[in-house]
């Protein structure tokens, strides 16, 4: 009896082994394929964006003007200008302001949720944050237009409330949920033993957050901030609605601006496909690509730098 049982067992074992021998490599290949496809898509998109503007970029684009001139007159009949400096300044000013709001606010909220709340209150807060993340960007734009605009006019006595300040606040609020949820994950991943060790040494909760949890979670927190930056740079509709649509280098947060993304969104529909203007917008796309790449690369180097220290 023992013999038969062990015989069937062995049979089953070897069958399941044989299946595993086929399935495991297949799964491995599938995963590998997913990984490669990510690379493929990134390059594919970059290639598409670049090739759509390639003719213009290679042959007729004055790179110096493109990078250093604030004059963007793509539709002028006599004096076409393709300078993006004002647009870059628009993007940078709005993004910088957004981050000045979103980073402290987002990280603060992440710390609060992860370290200072528990039970149903914590869950409720997390749900609210997720809800914030789910608000469509056009709704944010509408808030900028309908609520922030009159408020800014009132409070700052500004002629118009659609400006860097408005766009920055809106973008900041949009980036907060990302920073909160990823930041909270990063803090949650820090082992409790660190907290206990620090508290048992007589450190306060804040000192523990500041001196132990931040360093321990730094790469996750940095990722949270950068995804927030990425969202801010890439956001289009909301900033289009909130920043006032004026191509100029801002002198104060109350000046209207236009961002790179808003320019593409606003103008692409009106251009002749394949024309210089059309292609110039794709050149802006390439510029945006380079921006985000630079942000990610810096982040990567920063994280590595900290790690090796």
């Amino acid at each position: 009896m023992t013999d038969t049982t062990s015989g069937t067992d062995e049979g089953q074992v070897s069958t399941s082994r044989r299946i595993a021998a086929i399935v495991e490599p297949a799964i491995e290949w599938l995963i590998r394929l997913c990984g490669f496809s990510a690379i493929f898509f990134v390059f594919g998109i970059f290639f598409f964006v670049f090739s759509s503007g390639a003719d213009f970029i290679m042959n007729r684009l004055d790179v110096v003007e493109f990078m250093t001139s604030p004059e963007w007159y793509p539709t002028s009949v006599s004096n076409k200008r393709y300078g993006t400096l004002a647009l870059v300044a628009g993007t940078l000013s709005v993004t910088t302001l957004a981050m000045m709001i979103a980073v402290p606010f987002g990280l603060g909220t992440a710390v609060f949720i992860s370290e200072f709340c528990d039970g149903p209150f914590k869950e409720a807060l997390k749900i609210i944050v997720e809800f914030l993340a789910a608000i469509p960007s056009v709704v944010w734009g509408f808030i900028g237009l309908a609520i922030m605009n009159p408020v800014i006019i009132d409070v700052f006595n500004a002629p118009i409330g659609l400006n860097v300040l408005n766009g920055g606040v809106i973008l900041g609020l949009m980036s907060v949920p990302i920073i909160v949820s990823i930041g909270e994950d990063a803090l949650k991943a820090v082992p409790d033993t660190y907290r206990e060790a620090s508290l048992a040494l007589g450190a306060t909760k804040w000192q523990t957050v500041y001196k132990v949890l931040f360093p321990a979670a730094r790469s996750g927190l940095l990722a949270a901030v950068l995804l927030g930056v990425g969202r801010a740079i890439g956001e289009t509709i909301a900033v289009l609605m909130a920043t006032g649509h004026a191509v100029q280098i801002p002198n104060s947060p109350l000046d209207s601006v236009r961002t790179l993304t808003a320019t593409i969104a606003a103008e692409l529909g009106e251009t002749a496909q394949g024309g210089d203007h059309y292609q110039a917008l794709f050149a802006i796309g390439v510029l945006l690509f380079i921006f985000t790449f630079a942000v990610n690369l810096t982040a990567d180097l920063l994280v590595r730098g900290i790690k090796n220290k």
């Binding site: 060790a197 620090s198 040494l201």
Partner: peptide, 28 residues
């Protein structure tokens, strides 16, 4: 807690230098 040193079952090196680990509590 500063009057009571505590050593846990599993070693916990805090994510900082050896020096800073020991100097942590006094600094705080």
């Amino acid at each position: 807690r500063r009057r009571i040193g505590m050593v846990f079952p599993l070693p916990v090196g805090l994510p900082m230098s050896i020096y800073d680990n020991v100097a942590y509590a006094p600094r705080m």
